[in-house]
Design a protein around this nucleic acid. Structure first.
Lengths: 154, 154
DNA sequence: ACAATACTTGACTAAATTGGTCGAGATTCT
DNA sequence: AGAATCTCGACCAATTTAGTCAAGTATTGT
């Protein structure tokens, strides 16, 4: 299980929006700067997150993004599922059809898929339990101890 | 978590060797045929599995492959780790170094990595518990019920 | 001895994925 | 009107993945 760069950026962006969650909107530019993400790439990602119902956007000169739901309502599993594709898919060889004789390679693939399904369940179980809010807390704990001021958005 | 084709083939090949485990050796050609794996590709994979200590080979006219260890001694985690690369790696941002101020993107990446480490642990926990022997049993259960004879290797 | 069989090695290639860029347009604030 | 900002879709380069190929080397049956 490795997160793609795209996936990591998406979570980082949502983290910023989560940390400053409120009625106001944050500009792409600022998110990109804070998290050190290529601006154009981030545009794509935020657009994707918008179509997934994670964020809202405002256009125009005072435009930007904000979360569509509260950080407590967004789980990591949802984010990753949306950005990296379905987490539980496995096209698992119907197997209900008994008329159809299984070749030995099909039997093998099927057995392997059973295990991989267990793996996927374990992954989902972990990710389901972590909300964006949890992650925000984590970030605060990490950068809290050191007293460098929040380095406000320019 | 998705298995690469290469990884799936590797497990399928080991499954064949596991099902017919004994002192005798099985030819690449037969494994390829039974599991419907491109022969040349399978050669590469078996070679890799050999250098990983999973299988032995015998050259010459009566050559082929067999397991180097018993199916009970081989866990899925080992196989996947060897074929797909380290399962637990995460170069997790030392964080011990307090002198070094964390930028907000580093803090975010760090928080994300903590969660991903949990995910990886969960994956390993599942894979660690499944041996090649377990998988072989699974395969027998799947193809057992239907009474098509084992379709012996030609 | 020697032909047949089979593994060994490393280079090669085509297709898919990933990470990222670009330009033109649409929208909103002042 | 004009500047700032999001929007949309096409585009591109590097990497990875899946797979092929050829020229070896080792072993064994006869």
């Amino acid at each position: 299980m490795k997160l793609s760069q795209r996936g990591e950026y998406a979570i980082q962006a949502l983290l910023v929006l989560g940390m400053y969650h409120g009625p106001e909107v944050i500009r792409i530019k600022d998110i990109a700067k804070r998290q050190n993400i290529p601006r154009r790439f981030l545009e794509q990602i935020l657009n994707d997150l918008k179509s997934g119902g994670f964020v809202q956007s405002r256009r125009g000169v005072a435009g930007g993004y904000r979360l569509e739901r509260t950080p407590e309502e967004i789980s990591l599993s949802e984010i990753i599922r949306h950005i990296e594709g379905p987490l539980e898919s496995s096209h698992s060889l119907s197997l209900g059809d008994k008329k159809h004789n299984l070749h030995s390679d099909e039997a093998a693939k099927c057995a392997i898929n059973f295990v991989m399904q267990d793996v996927r369940s374990a992954i989902v179980e972990v990710l389901e339990a972590v909300t964006l809010s949890d992650l925000c807390r984590r970030v605060r704990e990490i950068q809290g101890p050191m007293e460098n001021p929040p380095d406000y958005i320019i």
